[in-house]
Amino acid sequence: MRRWIWLSVVVAFAIAYPLLLSSPFQQRLGALVLLYAIAASAWNIVGGYAGQVSVGHVVFFGCGAYAAMGAYAKFGLSPLFGIPGGIVLAVGLAAIVGVPTLRLSGHYFSMATIAVAETMRLIVTNTEWLGAAVGLSGPTVPRNIFDLSFLSALPYYYLFLAILSITLAITWWMTNSRMGFYLRAIKDSERAARSLGAPASRTKLYAYMLSAALTSVAGALYAMMFGFVDPESGLGILISVKILIMAALGGAGLLFGPLVGAAILVPLEEISNSWLGGKGAGLTFVVYGAIIVLIARFQPGGLLSLLTRRSRSKVDTGAGYAP
């Protein structure tokens, strides 16, 4: 019962936020928090629940962003029409990439995902049709409401809130389904899960594809809000790291972890930048880096793990010297 009370408090706060803090910049920050929460929650499915630390998730983010901007820039359609295309692209790519890489253990998987993302970034940078290094722009002056180019952040805020709710609902449903059960088993010990008959490879692949689809939606929304995508902002490895850090900081493998991470890191980044960035001494990142280090050092399981008593076992990926 209490659980539901707190849940309704969170929901009520989320709905009321842009009315309580109503300056355009605060509303935009709220929308950005939700946007990154969507991306980090999507990552959480494969990185948190399945324990497959993908550092190249930006490649799916980029699928969505480029599909949305491409729909407008190349076909004159509303960027909204790009979303399904982005999902198809991302899921297809996840299948192609996932089959060979998901069998890699631990860090090798992370490295392979970095390599895939960097390859895509470099290919797009050199592809004239996709705008190469110049990037693709969306509609600055909206033709109609479906161009999703608003002055106020309010419509974005509620759109993102709705999509975040759907993402979290899917995640919640997944963890309580057979798939979630398999994922937990695989995360604890893949070998044991296999020997007990859990279809490990297939389950991981499904989680990867689901995560890719949702990440691509986040990418499409991001591009629509900023009205622009280029290889660095749509496919740069730093975006992957940012998403991953939000999930890890809040608590990977926990339903609300990514939301908490985003709600802390996005304002921290924007506000420290607003206060310190103009001085040009790099202090923004000194502060930002120091806080991340402190959290990692004293709360390695993420902030929300303070509250869960679940013990964590470290996955052995074979430390040792191999001459």
Binding site: R2, W6, V260
Partner: peptide, 12 residues
């Protein structure tokens, strides 16, 4: 309760 703390963090 997890959600209580989530709320707290969000408020902060």
């Amino acid at each position: 309760m997890t959600l209580k703390h989530v709320t707290g963090l969000l408020c902060a």
